[in-house]
């Protein structure tokens, strides 16, 4: 399948009313190993993912894919929403929208739930699951679509250490199978473990985009250095 990447953002701005939420996002996301987006609370990480994913239209600037990304991208939200149906049905729902026959989509959904470790609770109503379980259902739901690019907004914020580890393994596998991972996190250890390159946001601007090693060893901006210095040692 022809790749929808690279994705190029040039001077992307987003204003809501009088507030400038994104000031200048200029960034190229190429196929390959995972890109990790970091920055302080309110820096614009979720906004960047929403713009890339097409959920928000830029007020200025351009967002361009190599080809039409329709149906080839998926996203795991910071606060996933679940429909009033079983976990399995929630995972199968995206496939249903695409007209995948019932038998096939149930099989795929079951497989994804198994791989996120939720096989045993596939039939439970999704909304009564714990926060961490819902986060994993959300990953399974996005994964079921077999996207070329997967955006994840702090997917491990609610997960226990074992589940975090499991999710990182899954993302590593997906990346190896060719899915482009673009993920935000506040966990710099995780950024190091998973990422090939780091995008650093500061007050609605992309002010640094560097390979992981270089970003952590010698950040190119005082803001990034301050951000890294403020991080707790564990």
């Amino acid at each position: 399948m022809a790749s929808i990447l690279p994705l190029e953002l040039v001077h992307v701005r987003l204003a809501i009313g009088d507030t400038l939420i994104a000031d200048d996002f200029t960034l190229t996301l190429a196929a390959g190993a995972p890109t990790i987006v970091v920055g302080a609370n309110g820096a614009g990480k979720s906004t960047l993912l929403r713009l890339c994913h097409g959920l928000a239209a830029p007020s200025a600037g351009t967002i361009a894919w190599a080809r039409d990304p329709k149906g080839h991208q998926a996203m795991v939200f910071q606060r996933p929403s679940m429909l009033r149906r079983s976990a399995l049905a929630n995972v199968a729902y995206g496939l249903k929208l695409r007209g995948v026959p019932r038998g096939v989509r149930t099989e795929i959904a079951r497989d994804r739930l198994r791989r996120v470790g939720l096989e045993a609770i596939a039939e439970r109503p999704a909304r009564v699951l714990s926060g961490g379980e819902q986060a994993r259902v959300a990953l399974a739901r996005a994964w079921a679509l077999d996207p070329q690019i997967l955006f994840l907004d702090e997917p491990t914020a609610n997960l226990d250490p074992a589940a975090t580890r499991a999710l990182e393994d899954i993302l590593g596998d997906m990346a190896e199978e060719g899915t482009k991972i673009v993920m935000t996190t506040h966990n710099l250890g995780q950024a190091r473990r998973l990422g090939a390159d780091i995008v650093f946001l500061h007050r609605g601007r992309v002010i640094e985009h560097a390979p992981v090693e270089r970003f952590f060893k010698s950040p190119g901006t005082p803001e990034a250095a301050a951000y890294l210095a403020g991080e707790l040692p564990w």
């Binding site: 929403r50 994913h53 097409g54 959920l55 329709k70 149906g71 998926a74 996203m75 939200f77 996933p80 929403s81 429909l83 009033r84 149906r85 729902y93 995206g94 929208l97 695409r98 739901r141 679509l145």
Partner: peptide, 25 residues
């Protein structure tokens, strides 16, 4: 308001979203 982003992300049309939400509620 709760499901808008999720439904659009999954590629639901407005009509599909309406049907889904009528059923969900």
């Amino acid at each position: 308001a709760e499901h808008c982003d999720q439904l659009r992300s999954l590629g639901a049309t407005l009509l599909q979203s309406a049907a889904t939400l009528l059923w969900d509620t």
